[in-house]
């Protein structure tokens, strides 16, 4: 039975504990960032950030401010197209772990040509993998496979102070997602789950995905 995340954005306060904890667990160095007129920093996923919180603000139909937070990470698709594309060039460059459903980059990934690596990244419906020029590897969330294999929660989930994130067996997470969705709909009539049939990371959004991030949903 694959594992699944639930990310209930209606409970997220964008504290970015997940973003920083992810870096800490994976021992990723800090980027030299700059203030560019946004709290979203680093501005995008990169080889040293497998997870970032995206910020998006807009005015609703009543002219009220809405500020949405989107902790962005690999969705660990149930049928991962990145694995298919990579396999055509280098079998085993990307694999799907049978037990957890985690989509993982292997050492063989470094043997992908830059063009093939780009093709793999471009194929991602959620714009996730990033190419590391130094190591020639594709980089992205690995579901904390080391922790999960040892029976622990992914670092981001463990860090979340508000209960916005949960992780567990897919069946349980789907049930929890439905329960949370019912609750959220009372306050947010447009609340919905993003692509729940296709991914292992269930995002619960309060309104249309376009108000979060252009790649929040596929299609």
């Amino acid at each position: 039975m694959p594992k699944t995340f639930l990310i209930d954005t209606t409970r997220c306060t964008a504290c970015r504990g997940c973003q920083v904890a992810c870096k800490e667990w994976h021992d990723l160095p800090a980027n030299q960032t700059k203030q560019r007129g946004s709290h979203q920093n680093p501005p995008d996923l990169n080889p040293y950030n497998y997870k970032i919180v995206r910020f998006h603000e807009h005015l609703d139909e009543n002219n009220n401010v809405v500020w949405n937070f989107f902790p962005d990470q690999c969705r660990h698709c149930l049928t991962p197209i990145c694995v298919d594309i990579a396999t055509m060039a280098v079998p085993g460059a990307l694999v799907q772990d049978e037990q957890s459903g985690a989509v993982l980059v292997t050492e063989k990934c470094a043997t992908l040509s830059p063009a093939d690596a780009k093709a793999v990244a471009d194929a991602c419906p959620y714009n996730i993998p990033r190419y590391d020029e130094k190591t020639h590897m594709l980089t992205k969330c690995d579901m904390c496979i080391d922790r999960v294999s040892a029976g622990m929660q992914p670092m981001c989930v463990k860090t979340c102070p508000t209960g916005a994130m949960a992780f567990g067996e897919r069946k349980e997470m789907l049930a929890l997602a439905q329960q949370r969705l019912e609750q959220a709909k009372k306050r947010y009539p447009k609340a919905h789950l993003v692509d729940p049939e296709d991914v292992s990371v269930l995002y619960l959004l309060a309104e249309e995905a376009e108000h979060y991030y252009k790649h929040a949903a596929f299609g």
Partner: peptide, 27 residues
């Protein structure tokens, strides 16, 4: 470093109206 990465530099939050008045753009 990982916290400085997330909020690296001093900023001033202001409205679009004031920015327009003062000829200031985001960033």
């Amino acid at each position: 470093p990982n916290l400085l990465e997330a909020e690296p530099q001093l900023y001033v939050e202001m409205s679009h109206e004031l920015a327009k008045e003062k000829g200031i753009s985001n960033g």
